[in-house]
Simulated scan of single mutants.
Amino acid sequence: MEATAVEVTGHAQRSAWRERSVPAVERVRPGLWSVPVPMGGPLRWVNAYVLELAGGGLGLVDTGWDADDSWAALCAGLTELGGDVADVRGVLVTHLHLDHVGLAARVREASGAWVAMHPADAAGITSFTGRTPEEMVEEEVAFLVSLGAPPEDARADAGTPEQRAGLLRVARPDRLLEDGDRADLPGWSLRAVHTPGHTEGHLCFADEATGLFFSGDHVLPRISPNISTHAGGAADPLRDYLGALGSVAGQVADEVLPGHEWRFRGLAARTAELRAHHEHRLAELLAAVREHPGGTPWELAAHLTWSRPWSQYERRMRIFAVTETDAHLRLLATRRLVVRDGTAVPRFAAATLR
């Protein structure tokens, strides 16, 4: 399919973004609303989508961050469109990150709704709800050290057990959705599309009847989602992500409804832009490896172009940057453009051309 230009359709959302505010609740189509749920950090809000169900009740695609102000915003949004949290019958979770699944437990408690996600992300939730916050911190410290971080920097960036306590409240799903499964939301025909990369079990949802494509964080209109490695995670998440981009590029989509930012048209064009972005990043990283042979992921991240000077990166931002660098290094290794030595901490050099 020939890629057409990306066209903004969520004009109110983009205007709010430019004004550094949060948009209003918006009726997208008959029986479909976008409810912005505020969150901290640069993304500012999550798009929770509310679907009116045949026979009564509501469905949700994503819920928002688990915080009192986010909960109040979600409840107020449901009231504004003439509903109530008690009307929710089912929650589709695109992926396990807390800005998308965080309020699912509160919604289920208030309404009795089922919660559904992909088995891979369900396993991820089980893994961290089965550990103490202290164990979570120690695992991340060990993983960062394995990427070349000095232990004191790894511990400073990983944060405290108290900051992990919210992970224990995350809802374990009642239902699992594999690629191609249909969601049980009467009046809609949402098909689950497995798009690993941002998380191992990331799901998009396609509705062929309306041409709507709920893209979660897989395809966003302005930014590239973070593709990172983590302890016990996928061996080559960037390869998975680029493959999943290719699989949705031919999806017939009249409009894309992302988890952040604004709605748009031009899914094929946007996936092409994202693939080009990562190829540029891979080329930049390969050049850094050639200039700094034997570098670890931690060291090589400092030689890449970021949105601000590397000296300003710390804590979660630095973790994202280093683990994203590691994901790109793994794909370069898969392509046999770099080689790593056999030590516990990987050190990379450019492959010798034959």
Rank of each mutant, 00 (worst) to 15 (best):
A5Q: 05
V6E: 02
G10D: 04
S15M: 09
V22D: 00
V22Q: 01
P23C: 09
P30C: 01
G31W: 01
G40W: 03
L43F: 14
L43K: 12
W45Q: 04
V46E: 12
N47S: 05
L58G: 02
G64K: 09
A73W: 02
L74K: 14
G77V: 14
L78G: 08
D84P: 00
V85E: 06
V85F: 03
V85S: 09
T94W: 01
H100P: 00
R106H: 10
E109K: 07
G112K: 06
H118Y: 00
I125E: 07
T126K: 09
R131A: 14
R131M: 12
A142K: 06
F143Q: 01
E152V: 11
P161Y: 00
R164V: 12
L167Q: 12
L168F: 06
R172L: 15
D174L: 04
R175F: 04
E178H: 12
D179W: 04
D179A: 09
D181M: 04
R182P: 00
P186E: 08
L190M: 11
R191Q: 14
T195I: 14
C204A: 14
A206C: 03
A206L: 10
F213C: 00
F213R: 00
H218Q: 12
L220K: 10
P221V: 08
P225N: 09
S228V: 15
H230R: 09
G232I: 08
G233I: 11
A234N: 03
A234R: 12
L238N: 01
D240P: 00
L242C: 04
A244W: 10
E255P: 01
E255C: 08
L257Q: 03
H260R: 12
R270G: 00
E273D: 13
H277N: 07
A287H: 08
A288N: 04
H292W: 13
P297W: 02
E299V: 04
A301C: 14
A302S: 13
H303I: 03
T305K: 10
W310V: 15
S311K: 07
M317K: 05
R318H: 14
T323E: 15
D326G: 00
D326K: 07
H328Q: 11
L329G: 03
R330N: 06
L331G: 03
A333M: 13
D341L: 06
F348H: 13
L353T: 15
